[in-house]
Amino acid sequence: MQNKKNLKIAFFGSSLVSAYWNGAATYYRGIVRALHQRGHQVTFYEPDAYQRQENRDMADPDWAKVVVYPAAEEAVHQVLLDATHADIVVKASGVGVFDELLEAEVLKLQTPDRTIIFWDVDAPATLDRVQHNPEDPFRAHIPQYDMILTYGGGEPVIQAYAALGAKQCVPIYNALDTATHFPVEPNPKFACDLAFLGNRLPDREARVEQFFLNVAAKCPEQSFMIGGSGWGDKPMSSNVKYIGHVFTQDHNAFNCTPKAVLNISRESMARYGFSPATRVFEAAGAAACIITDYWEGIDFFFEPDTEILVAQDGDEVAQIMAGLTPEKAQVIGEAAFKKVLAAHTYDHRADQLEQLLFSKILKNAGELV
């Protein structure tokens, strides 16, 4: 085993260098950067798929080694062989190509000195899938992993994974990466009353209609903006401006400029609760006034009415906007900024993760004695 301050971690994920059709990118970046700052070495393996490499929003960082491999089975086996250098091997959900192969093959790297982790960045979707299909190949693998980490989900997700035989399931929540998300000067091109950022996905679309598009149609006197991939052919009222994919370097201005920004959870995330989207922490890190749809556990992260505004439906979004002055929005945004710095940065998450990893390593070592 390596020195306690120098774990070698192999991480199989969708992409570290491109946020294109890849909502987990900023989550990966925050976690990996914080691990590097603690002295650990991360190699991130990502496939050349979905035009992500053509739509990079960052160069290879100095805080991780990035290995881009062809979307071919032979290449998958080659990078698996390369990962044998690691003390910790992580397979994230939703790599996008050869997920089933990776989920089975990383388990063959398991040794008393090498911990194998499944990191579920979409636990509600994974659990729904395996619970409805007893023949799902991943179902049989769950008890074999040393640990299941999740992007969120709280106790419902922990209990669901335990029922499927997981040895240990721990949520590592989204957080703020202070190196990339922070207050900046407003940019006039993002000026509006209410902005929403999110890709068009099947279990998000109906909620975007309810909490955003329908609200805009009923509030013609206010201006709205929507960013993200896939909305180009979606009917919208004339007071909604669609701006397409927003690169991460523009996120701060997108969050700082509007009077308020809206968080809309995907249906499955809202149903499980305790699953704050990355954009909540990113917006708080820019001192934005955030309005969020309701989900169980909001008050675990931010205090409603003081640090975040909560709406049960579209009518409540409209009511909030009708009474929201720029001054009130600024006070709420500043309160969210203070909270996120105090409790919800990726350094906080890396501290939790580091303790988990070392407790697992010590437990394995004890069992060998």
Rank of each mutant, 00 (worst) to 15 (best):
K218C: 08
E334I: 10
V97I: 14
I142D: 08
D177Y: 06
E135W: 06
T278V: 08
F212R: 03
L309K: 02
L201T: 14
T248M: 10
E100Q: 13
H348S: 08
T26L: 00
I226R: 02
V208W: 09
L262E: 00
H181T: 09
P124L: 02
L109G: 07
G314Y: 15
K4S: 14
G333L: 10
Y145H: 00
K241T: 14
Y27W: 09
P202D: 13
D120P: 06
T111I: 11
E296R: 10
G230L: 15
P276E: 01
L357E: 05
E100G: 08
L101T: 09
L213S: 06
L201I: 13
H251W: 03
P183T: 04
A19L: 07
Y28I: 02
D62H: 12
V208Q: 02
V215P: 15
I291Y: 00
L213C: 12
Q110A: 12
G314C: 14
A140D: 15
D293F: 00
A277K: 04
I308V: 12
D122L: 03
S359P: 01
Y242C: 08
I320P: 03
H132K: 13
A10P: 12
M236T: 02
F98G: 09
Q144W: 03
R349D: 03
V32S: 14
K8E: 15
E296Y: 01
W119E: 04
G13C: 12
S93H: 07
I226M: 03
P70N: 08
A343N: 11
H85E: 15
D177C: 04
I264K: 01
I172W: 12
L357T: 05
